[in-house]
Amino acid sequence: MPTDLTLEHLCKSYPQTTGGLFPVLEDVCLHVEKGAFVTVLGGNGYGKSTLLRIISGMEQPTQGRILLNGQAVRQRLGRVGLVSQEVDLLPWRTTLDNVAFGLELRGMPQAKREHLASAYLRAFGLEKFSACYPRELSGGMRQKVAIARTLVTAPDIILMDEPFSALDYQTRTSLQCFLLQLWAKLRETIVFVTHDVEEAVFLSDYIVLLSPIPAHVVEIIPVPLARPRVRSAAATAALCRQVLEKYGSSSCVDNDEMRRAL
């Protein structure tokens, strides 16, 4: 069921060993409509992963609320799907058992969950590998399995934490297209974190630009390009440049400053 997501004044800080608090998120506010594909853009160490961990329910914010369909939900584990950057398939489970894992945790009978998981594997073109263990799969296939494992449980929201960043260019672009096809069919709400401007422009309805730590939303940049998008189109490239300027200004060292320093 597509769900809308609202983040209200999220703050997160961690206690430091030296004492005091280290703020990671500071007043993050965001509204994501039902079925929207949103990317969150920020550099490494901008608190993007922290943000997703909080939305997923693995951590609670220090302040602020998370609303699903307008209702504050504290217990989000099991309702929000998360696909992460590192391949985190359980290595002792076959492809089929990995996809069925979430259903198994929900107590679905074996025959039923395997039937459902097989259907996903077929749709993902992975049915030949259903009895394989993760070590026998390529990086791209593993990430597809991780996506299937998330989708099969029909979560309210799908969070993706740089899911393709560890893959080579060709695998990455083909998985981006694959993800868009899936989304076009399922119309799930997706929050996709990335540090790659081109990826953000190619995939999303709008881009949420984060500031460096303590992170807050700097700007929400709409991506008014028609779908299906073409990577090489002039409009795409122009938008990339435009986003890059904003993104760069919040993360790059000033050129003059660098010249002076060197």
Partner: peptide, 15 residues
Amino acid sequence: VSAGCIGVAEVLGAS
């Protein structure tokens, strides 16, 4: 045991 494996199970709602 990697935190990733435990995290996966948690997010999927494991007890």
